[in-house]
């Protein structure tokens, strides 16, 4: 039997949860409601006049080539970040799992990048890859590669993908390592006796058993790429060149803060809100039921 604490007082339980609810309302629901409200408005650039326009902001967005392009950029960016991030961290975790000596030091070092703030990570990589003074640029020149992400959109994309992936690998790594260590040793041994080599064991036994972890990380990484990479982009490309790296969340900021188009910016954030809700639902639906076996 589940033991339940019952309060005799009618108001005490509400008083106890009130601080939590207050924080949620003030910092989450209120801004969200504001964003929804502003998304129905049209404001002049000086904030003097406001006019209710219904869904026109949304309608304008979906006719705006720039906005649709930002969708495409976001999709490419988050797919790259999630895929590359997961692939590299899985590789690192699989190798760390085999390390016996100095495993702790190895793991600790791999976790460090996670402690670095996104903006700092962005600046770090921006310096390394700086078109004029970057050391990587210099090396690339030696190989005959003309590296200039300030002009080349694809290179700019590559830069923010590298910076974002680098930051997220630690997180993925920890989950994969924990997942790998929870796979019973005897399963791997059984597969070895059954005749499977290391590669085959990995793909037919280990990887399927990691699928819940992988799926969880996929969702987390997509969410990360959508939202938490703002700092990386702001510190490096700032959406450029020619909006080649302007992902949705950066466009919200750009249109609202820099271009002072509050209505459109709000409408964009409402759309982002729905995307998050959808991702969360997917996450809970599948994770709760386990994708596994």
């Amino acid at each position: 039997m589940e033991k339940r604490v019952v309060f005799r007082s009618a108001w005490l339980p509400y008083a106890l949860v009130a601080p939590q609810i207050a924080i949620t309302v003030v910092f989450f629901f209120w801004p969200a409601a504001q964003a929804v409200w502003y998304s129905f408005q049209l404001q002049d650039a000086f904030g003097l006049k406001t006019q209710f326009v219904g869904l026109q902001n949304f309608a304008a967005l979906f006719k705006d080539g720039n906005y649709l392009d930002s969708f495409r950029v976001t999709a490419v960016f988050s797919a790259l970040v999630a895929f590359i991030g997961i692939a590299i961290s899985l590789l690192l975790a699989a190798m760390a799992d085999r390390v016996l000596r100095g495993a702790l030091a190895y793991k600790t070092l791999l976790v460090w990048p996670y402690a670095v703030a996104p903006a700092v990570a962005g600046v770090l990589w921006a310096f390394l890859f700086a078109p004029s003074i970057g050391i990587v640029t210099y090396v690339l020149k030696g190989f005959g590669v003309d590296w200039n992400w300030i002009l080349d959109g694809d290179q700019a994309m590559l830069l923010i993908v590298i910076a974002s992936v680098w930051k997220q690998i630690s997180y993925n790594f920890l989950f994969f390592l924990a997942g790998l260590q929870s796979i019973p040793r005897s399963l791997i041994e059984a597969a070895a006796i059954d005749g499977a080599g290391p590669t085959r064991r990995f793909w037919t036994v280990v990887f399927p058993l990691l699928s819940p972890t992988t799926f969880f990380l996929l969702v987390v990484n997509v969410v990360y790429a959508f939202f938490d990479t703002f700092g990386v982009i702001d510190a490096t490309t700032q959406g450029g060149p020619a909006q080649a790296t302007q992902i949705l969340v950066y466009k919200v900021y750009h249109d609202g803060v820099k271009a002072a188009d509050l209505g459109s910016s709000s409408a964009q954030s409402v759309i982002l809100m729905f995307i998050v809700i959808a991702l969360t639902v997917v996450q809970f639906r599948f994770i709760e039921r386990k994708v596994q076996y």
Binding site: P184, S186, E189, P208, L209, Q292, Y293
Partner: peptide, 9 residues
């Protein structure tokens, strides 16, 4: 094996 080590998936 003692714990059978069946492939659960």
């Amino acid at each position: 094996f003692q714990n059978y080590a069946l492939y659960p998936h």
